[in-house]
Design a protein around this nucleic acid. Structure first.
Lengths: 181, 181
DNA sequence: AATGTTATATAACAAATGTAATTTAAGTAA
DNA sequence: TTACTTAAATTACATTTGTTATATAACATT
């Protein structure tokens, strides 16, 4: 048999790259094939259909997101995460849209957000720094996430022209407001 | 000549209704025609192409939004507007997505948000109630809008299962936090 | 070297959608 | 009544995209 020229990883890599550059909707069989320099056929030998490929792209995007965020978390975990999310919305707008404006895992309450996004270290750090009760920490956490999501969404949908400094300032203001409330 | 059976308003009305029920992407010539009980031809006599129709639908949607919001503003203007926006995201999810997750007029800074959404009465009421400096009012206004947008977006994209009371509570918490910061 | 297997290429089909061409027929004016 | 105008219906064509059927050719096995 002929040696395999195409690898599943290559397909995913290219599809993810296309999503980053031109948006998730731009991912279709012919365009992926063209960018690989191959025909569409190999796509269908690795994925049962385009839906399956797209689902895999979503998972890749989520990994990319996690790496993006965690690589930017330093001293002040919660605030760093907030800043990183805004940066993600600004510099990876198409991935942000895919992950947070189209597919968001169904949440049933704000507590779910906490469960879902909840970062043990972040809450620990917060409680050590400010010695606030558990319930209060949770509130600050949820509210900053919601606020951050507001900033990020506005940046992702509004044309991405709010400068990094300005968004950093407003995030910090919100953070302090929530802590001190 | 035969009497005109179809009216431009009818087309827009139905296209807006379809957007509300099934999303903006569901609006296409054949579906609109089918729901009107006519052929696609009248659409093209009133609109140069589908793009023009869709642009008009956007404008209709914006009018619908404004009416939705202002009909819910009562005593506490700013907080009422926040609650109304969240309700819009929950009960008019498809319109919310169209207006705020796809087409948002390009904003260049958070001050632009204030200029764009800024409600004279709301700021006046706020300054009378709390006697805060102009600059502070503006900050509260912007931050509550951003926070509200975070809540609304999460509801619109997350499956809309956060109850009205819960979102009301968190909005008020944020409002107080911003006022008292 | 001949044959079979299979990865890839090519080409074709199907469905959805926008849009234009053509036809039909309702009402008007002569 | 007849011919004309035009709103609407019908039909047809183009494009895009997913998908499959067939063809080709590279490699393994004999």
């Amino acid at each position: 048999m002929p040696k395999q020229k195409v690898d599943q990883k290559d397909i995913l890599k290219i599809a993810l790259q296309m999503t980053r550059e031109d948006g998730f909707e731009s991912v279709n069989a012919r365009k992926v094939a063209k960018r690989m320099g191959f025909s569409v056929q190999p796509i269908y030998s690795y994925f049962s259909n385009m839906e399956a490929l797209k689902e895999s792209v979503c998972q890749e995007a989520m990994r990319f997101y996690n790496h993006f965020i965690y690589s930017r978390v330093d001293k002040d975990i919660l605030l760093d995460m907030a800043r990183a999310n805004v940066a993600f919305a600004k510099y990876e707008t198409n991935l942000f849209k895919l992950l947070f404006l189209q597919k968001l895992n169904g949440l049933n309450s704000f507590d779910d957000i906490y469960e879902w996004m909840g970062d043990k270290q972040a809450t620990k750090q917060l409680s050590e720094k400010f010695s606030l009760p558990e319930e209060k920490i949770k509130d600050v956490y949820i509210m900053l996430i919601v606020f951050t999501h507001g900033v990020a969404t506005m940046i992702a949908t509004g044309g991405a022209n709010i400068c990094d400094e300005e968004s950093a300032v407003i995030l910090e203001k919100a953070y302090n407001a929530f802590i001190n409330s």
